[in-house]
Write a protein that binds this DNA or RNA. Structure first.
Length: 681
DNA sequence: AGCGGCGTCATTTTT
DNA sequence: TGACGCCGCT
């Protein structure tokens, strides 16, 4: 394959949906390491960058199969963010960041912003958070953002951002956006650091390149240097994260920024039938093209795409369930394969659509999982424990301090913390530092002071032990001892009136303990024929990596259940049989008020539709609602314009639904004509 | 300080 | 339909 052979200049692989891009990347990595092909790189000189931990894990696994565990272990396969962490931990001191800095998750950020903006309104805080994140992703500081603000709300957001920046510095904490922005700054401003990493990484491969934002592209450029060699793999037609800062400009600019860039399109699709692919192509061809590309497959025509009209959401769920049962029973025309539950997925635009499907599936006794729901690390009990660990790593992490000091309740109340906070602010110390200051005694009564000191000593003691506890077994013992000392199990039962819920929470805690302990290693692992003792890490080492990890993917992989997922989260996945739910105007081209949607937004929504269609291998069912629930009552629902764009003419039996869709589509067009046309299309 | 009733309001989401 | 904020009451 050309993309794999091309080793000596920058390379852009335009990997259409289902064209086997992971295979290209893994084979290219193998080739780069293979002697006699001119590259001859050591594993440690190759970096493969992905967006999610899951993708990184999968990549590592696939490479391991090709080059063996030894070489694979030395490769740098990581996410943009974990790469950022590595840069900052190794060289961040040049920016005045101590190596044990804390990484804040989204909730921490929300509560800090509430504080900075002096409000209790989480929604307002989240809107700031959102805005600040966009600015950061464009590479702007609060000072620079000041010059681009348009509205009063943005004015306020900038002011809050300023305070927020100061606060993070004081906490020695960074948020997720900083994990890109700060390394970028580091590389840009410190030549020796830049030289070090450019020497280290001789070939960088970037997965899902179309999802990169402005700062990630800048970071990539600095990482590879002006003459750098890299492989970017992506698909402009699958760019669906514009709303969080990803920009196709990065794709546009690549040929200009790197004149020797070789562009290689991958147009053969190994996943879907021609019927499905034709529908996908019909839709996406209506978007302006950055690079020309038309997918084809030799998997045969296959079943026609089914268009199903449903009265409302409940009816839609019933029909989806009926479809699944029919295919599984082998009664559906043309589908013969042994059909397991995990061959099915129901895709939808917005999370709340899952509920009705869940009900219907439960009623039909069909096992399912909802992806993208609350993740393990979002659960309150896990966050409690993570706050403790964070405090051990970085004593100056005030948000962690507050959470740890008050969960479980240990006699440190709002009064005490208020005074402590005031004192700390006055002397520009972290809460933890302030707690041991002599002059604090003047501000607090003896009892409160005693409790605080006791807490501080406990944390110090714990920190010492965590630093010196290595290996899975000792780690587990240490963690259990700690939980016992803070009385965490009791705390759960005290604060949860429902005993079952408390038990479930405690179970999560135990899972968490096992998970951390496992990562402390020291156990004999079987690594594809070779047994190696994994590296022994201290509890503290492991704790440092936690905030980057958001799922326990290894725990619930490969369950034989039907998948319910949003279109966004479905990218990169595939199923033999797919149901595309709620293909209606306002929902799939999502729009807040009827018709209020810009041309750019429609394009991204169209790509989303394209992603959805191309998830299906053998059969695709597209659902359109006649009426949908809006608030409490049903409203007329227009079929999505994308349904007509699929041009499901050929070979569809049963003309009546199609006719009806056509009619509704025409009505929609007439209505659009009557109303003032949306700008920018 | 904590709890319960009432009104408001709803994309997508990884790290 | 439900999650959450706010306010007033104990």
């Amino acid at each position: 394959m050309e993309a794999v052979q091309h080793l000596h200049s920058p390379c852009l692989v335009l990997a259409g949906a289902g064209s086997g891009k992971t295979r290209v990347i893994t084979h290219k990595i193998a080739r780069l390491m293979q002697p006699g092909y001119g590259a001859d790189l050591a594993p440690s000189q190759i970096g493969a960058i992905t967006f999610t931990n899951k993708a990184a894990a999968e990549m590592r696994e696939r490479v391991k199969d090709l080059v063996g565990p030894r070489a694979a272990g030395k490769l740098m396969v990581c996410t943009f963010h974990s790469l950022g962490v590595r840069l900052l931990r190794e060289d961040g001191e040049a920016l005045g960041l101590k190596p044990q800095f804390s990484i804040l998750d989204a909730d921490d950020v929300t509560s800090i912003l509430r504080d900075c903006g002096a409000t209790t309104d989480a929604k307002l805080a989240r809107s700031w958070q959102w805005q600040i994140s966009l600015w950061k992703n464009m590479g702007l500081t609060s000072g620079q953002a000041m010059s681009v603000i348009k509205t009063d709300e943005e004015q306020v957001a900038v002011r809050v951002m300023k305070l927020y920046e100061e606060r993070l510095l004081a906490y020695q904490a960074v948020d997720f956006d900083d994990l890109i922005g700060l390394p970028l700054k580091l590389l840009a401003e410190h030549e020796h650091v830049r030289a070090k990493w450019q020497r280290q990484l001789r070939h960088v491969l970037v997965d899902e390149y179309q999802d990169t934002n402005a700062t990630q592209y800048e970071m990539l450029k600095l990482l590879v240097g002006p003459n750098g060699i890299f492989t970017a793999v992506g698909d402009d037609d699958q760019s669906i994260y514009g709303w969080r800062g990803a920009t196709l400009d990065n794709l546009k600019r690549l040929p200009q920024d790197f004149p020797t860039l070789k562009v290689i399109p991958l147009e053969q699709n190994y996943r879907s039938t021609s019927a499905i692919l034709r529908a996908a192509n019909n839709v996406i061809q209506l978007n302006p093209k950055l690079f020309q590309k038309t997918l084809w497959s030799d998997l045969g025509e296959g079943e026609p795409v089914r268009l199903v009209e449903c009265d409302n959401e409940e009816h839609e769920a019933e029909r989806a369930v009926a479809r699944i049962q029919a295919v599984r029973g082998g009664n559906a025309s043309g589908v013969q394969a042994a059909v397991e539950w995990n061959n099915f997925a129901i895709l939808y635009r917005a999370n709340h659509q899952a509920r009705i499907f869940e009900q219907a599936l439960r009623k039909a006794n069909i096992p399912y999982k909802v992806s993208g729901g609350q993740s393990f690390f979002d659960k309150a009990e896990i966050k409690d424990l993570c706050a403790w660990l964070r405090l051990l790593i970085n004593n100056d992490d005030d948000p962690a301090f507050l959470r740890a000091a008050t969960t479980p309740k240990r006699g440190i109340g709002h009064q005490t913390l208020g005074s402590l906070g005031e004192f700390a602010g006055q002397w520009k110390k972290s809460l933890f530092e302030a707690l041991f200051a002599d002059s604090l005694a003047a501000k607090l009564n003896a009892r409160a002071l005693g409790t605080l000191h006791e807490f501080g000593r406990f944390v110090n003691d714990l920190e010492y032990k965590a630093r010196h506890t290595h290996g899975a077994e000792d780690a587990k013992a240490f963690l259990m001892e700690w939980l016992k000392e803070i009385g965490y199990e009791q705390h759960l039962y005290d604060n949860e009136e429902n005993e079952k819920v408390a038990a479930a929470r405690w179970n999560n805690v135990l899972d968490f303990v096992d998970w951390v302990a496992k990562r402390c290693g020291g156990e004999i692992e079987n690594d594809g024929g070779m047994t190696t003792e994994s590296e022994r890490k201290s509890v503290l080492d492991v704790a440092q990596t936690i905030s980057l990890i958001t799922s326990l993917a290894e725990r619930n992989a490969d369950q034989n259940v039907v998948t319910l997922t949003t279109l966004h989260a479905s990218k990169g996945l595939e199923w033999p049989h797919v149901v595309l739910a709620g293909c209606n105007e306002g929902l799939l081209p999502f729009s807040r008020e009827e018709g209020e949607i810009s041309g750019q937004q429609v394009e991204e929504e169209r790509r989303l539709m394209y992603v959805g269609i191309t998830r299906a291998r053998l059969s695709l069912m597209v659902c359109v609602l006649r009426r949908r629930k809006k608030g409490r009552e049903y409203v007329q629902a227009m079929p999505s314009r994308f349904v007509a764009e699929m041009k499901l003419g050929e070979g569809t039996p049963g003309e009546s639904p199609r006719e009806r869709i056509k009619r509704l589509r025409e009505e929609l067009a007439a209505k659009a004509k009557a109303a003032p046309p949306p700008s920018g299309d």
